[in-house]
């Protein structure tokens, strides 16, 4: 607030009489004209739906005169939320996504970190080839990635299954135990390169002089990587983790595609699939409550993780 005010006075002072005549900075109308093209759709398509979902999640459908009477909605307090928390399908979707996230996010980010460190080290040749190869999946939409992988999982078509059979293994990528990890693999394939590039960009912005002293002391590349580089890019690692947590909670397209070839994925497999299934059954109030819960859990987890890690790192 004071910052804005002091800057405003500075601008007024700097630009002298003409500016004072205009009343400091561009006229309010001009500023509004710059902001409105973004803020109008932002309010309409971001803020209003959020408000609407929250409002709806506190409504219930009632009927006048028995089961076949006309329906109307009315205030229902926390009824929808109570329903959500009593829904076993909700809890199993949360449990599934939790297991998925606890395994997939660290594995993916670990691989991304190793790749970024190797690309930043003097050990590699063909750097741009590796960078492009890893980043290429980012150009592929989740649906198409899942379609591609579903061919590689399919017992009839997959060359991977064929090779594994030749060495005496009988994998079933779509079985009840495996299908969650087959889904996790699609996410890992899609996002490792993207995360790698964020971490790599952070590594590239570290000034080289920082390593020179360590090198003179005889530190190995390995020691430089883990003792110097990783701690410096910790904020980027935290950022990628938060983005990955958000992504995991939103999982929809990949399991929805794999569901087309595997009976081991139910229509309520992830929280988002559950919300969609509930909405398809015309229970919009319940679906709104599920959406709100997903959004709140996302916020709490990402902020919680940020707080926890920044405090521990003493930042």
């Amino acid at each position: 607030m004071t910052d804005t005010a002091s800057r405003a006075t500075r601008v007024v002072a700097a630009s002298g009489r003409r500016r004072r005549h205009l009343g400091g900075g561009p006229r309010a109308g001009t500023i509004v004209a710059f902001l409105t093209p973004f803020f109008l759709p932002f309010v309409l398509f971001y803020l209003v739906p959020i408000g609407y979902a929250i409002w709806q999640s506190f409504r219930v459908v009632r009927r006048t005169g028995g089961q076949y009477g006309t329906s109307y909605t009315t205030f229902g307090g926390f009824h929808q939320y109570v329903q959500v928390f009593h829904n076993t399908e909700f809890w199993s979707s949360i449990e599934r996504i939790g297991l998925f996230g606890v395994v997939q996010v660290p594995v993916m980010l670990f691989v991304a970190l190793i790749m970024a460190l190797l690309l930043d080290s003097p050990l590699l040749r063909l750097r741009s080839f590796f960078r492009i190869a890893a980043f290429m999946p980012y150009a592929v939409p989740g649906v198409i990635a899942a379609i591609m992988w579903s061919f590689l999982y399919s017992p009839q078509l997959s060359p991977v299954v064929e090779v594994l059979k030749d060495v005496g293994l009988t994998p079933n990528f779509l079985g009840p135990g495996a299908v969650l990890w087959s889904t996790a693999n699609v996410s890992t394939w899609l996002w490792t390169g993207y995360n790698m590039l964020i971490l790599f960009s952070a590594l590239q912005s570290i000034p080289q002089e920082l390593y020179e002293a360590a090198r003179l002391d005889g530190a190995s590349n390995w020691a430089i990587a883990w003792r110097i580089k990783v701690p410096i890019i910790a904020p980027s690692i935290i950022l990628t983790t938060v983005f990955s947590i958000i992504g995991t909670l939103q999982l929809y397209a990949e399991p929805a595609v794999l569901r087309q070839i595997s009976s081991n994925i139910s229509s309520t497999y992830t929280p988002n699939m559950l919300a969609y299934a509930v909405a398809s059954g015309n229970n919009y109030q319940q679906a709104a409550a599920i959406s709100v819960v997903i959004a709140v859990v996302t916020f709490v987890l990402s902020f919680g993780f940020m707080r926890l890690t920044t405090r521990r790192a003493g930042l």
């Binding site: 932002f42 398509f45 971001y46 209003v48 739906p49 959020i50 609407y52 979902a53 709806q56 958000i246 909670l249 939103q250 929809y252 988002n272 919300a275 969609y276 909405a279 919009y284 679906a287 709104a288 959406s291 709100v292 997903i294 959004a295 996302t298 916020f299 990402s302």
Partner: peptide, 17 residues
């Protein structure tokens, strides 16, 4: 704050609106 809002959470209320 909008950056952190999961866009999938917006789709269903948007559909109703």
């Amino acid at each position: 704050g909008g950056v952190l809002v999961p866009t999938t959470a917006l789709a269903l209320p948007l559909f109703l609106l």
